[in-house]
Design a binder for these strands. Structure first.
Length: 255
DNA sequence: ATGGTGGGTTACCCA
């Protein structure tokens, strides 16, 4: 069972990449972020032709999340209590015996800004709801673009990024509160090394120089721990022409 | 310290 998270930065532009990647990587479940498509324009019939059913919560121009699976995801949540948010950033659904929460966490722009406050508030509200989900569903996977590098070993230049957006202490503490509901960063379950990233700035040849951050995470609940088989980041689609600035983060689970 | 690239749009946009 292969579960992936991929910020595609416009599904319109990245549909050929998605198609290619689904064909070669053969994931079972894929969480997409930044689809930037309103629901009426979501290419669900094209995706069905590739062998995946999908659910989605999108908007024009910004944000947008989707979940692809071999079978239709059910029991969908796109809005959480206490968060009247027009921005489409969360999609929770059940696939088989798994509960999957796909997050496109707010970027936050700059530490101390209004968007930064929104980021921390959004995460606090979502964390509360994830606690409710965890209480109801023992097999919980929380994945997505967290827009937070958990630790300095997830950052190419920790000095330059010290207390900057995506790396500040309040953001890292907020991520720890998500994990405190009983979730493990599956990548770190297998690999303690640094230098492995999931996002590289388009500017200044960030990817070619591996100047990146690991901000795309797949968290798995404690009940899933015995089933963790492997975790990695697939750099291949980041090398393709006109790529997303993110690479897919993958967790493999034993049946 | 600034700005660079790329998505979207025509915004003092967002990443």
């Amino acid at each position: 069972m292969k579960i992936a998270s991929w910020n595609v930065n416009s599904l319109n532009v990245r549909m050929p990449h998605l198609k290619q990647w689904l064909g070669t990587a053969q994931p079972d479940i894929v969480a997409l972020q930044e689809t930037k498509l309103e629901d009426a324009k979501f290419p669900d019939t094209d995706i069905a032709a590739l062998g995946y059913r999908c659910v989605f919560s999108g908007q024009k121009t910004y944000n947008g999340v989707a979940l692809l699976a071999r079978e239709m995801p059910v029991d969908i949540v796109t809005d959480v209590p206490g968060l009247a948010d027009p921005q489409r950033r969360i999609l929770i659904a059940s696939v088989g015996d798994l509960r999957i929460a796909n997050l496109y966490v707010v970027n936050g722009q700059e530490v101390g800004s209004e968007k930064y406050k929104y980021k921390l508030d959004w995460l606090a509200r979502v964390t509360d709801h994830l606690g409710n989900e965890a209480a109801k569903h023992k097999n919980l996977v929380v994945l997505g673009d967290f827009n937070i590098a958990p630790e300095d070993r997830d950052v190419h230049d920790p000095v330059a990024w010290h207390e900057q957006i995506l790396c500040s202490t309040p953001e890292r503490e907020a991520l720890k509160r998500v994990e405190s509901i009983g979730l493990v960063d599956s990548y770190r379950h297998f690999d303690t090394e640094g230098g492995k990233y999931s996002w590289w700035d388009y500017r200044q040849a960030g990817f070619q120089r591996n100047r990146g951050l690991r901000i795309d995470l797949v968290l798995a609940s404690d009940a899933l721990r015995p089933r963790l088989a492997a975790a990695h980041i697939d750099l291949e689609p980041r090398r393709w022409e006109r790529p997303s600035d993110h690479a897919p983060a993958i967790l493999e689970l034993n049946a």
